[in-house]
Amino acid sequence: MMKKHTISILVENKFGVLSRVSGLFSGRGYNIESISVGETLDKNISVMTIVTHGDDIIVEQITKQLNKLIDVIKVQDLYETDHVEREMVLIKVSPKIEQKSEVLRLTEIFRGKVVDSSQKTYTIEITGDEKKIDAFLELMKPMGVKEFICSGKIAIAREKK
């Protein structure tokens, strides 16, 4: 059965590492839904969060293949682990005059922020997990979404209590 997996990968912060990882996915026909890369506290190490999907055998291969890459330090499939996921979107909407207050109200309910506004548009920043973002997007659709951009997902395992 195909399932969505969020995989967190610690890698050496070296030239070419991103292409080694993405090349592995394309070369072996695995799919990348989103990818995000950033530094960690140790500036020699980066963390990549990749969202992919596949059945158990494919995902097992993906994690093994990632582990096999020389520059990969640690691979964690967060599927089985309790974890927090976040992504961020920026949405530019151009509501009709009578919709403006509804846009602001919804933004507040979703704890978003208006980061830019013009006479005709608002640009709203919103963070959350996929469900929250999808829900917000759904509500914004009637408000005249002009542009929409989404960061890759980032994820972190919850500390065991």
Binding site: G16, S19, R20, G23, G27, I70
Partner: peptide, 16 residues
């Protein structure tokens, strides 16, 4: 060549 041979080497380097 580092780009070209990435999938057909175990590892490769560009020495800078």
């Amino acid at each position: 060549i580092v780009g070209i041979t990435r999938p057909c080497t175990k590892y490769n380097y560009l020495v800078k």
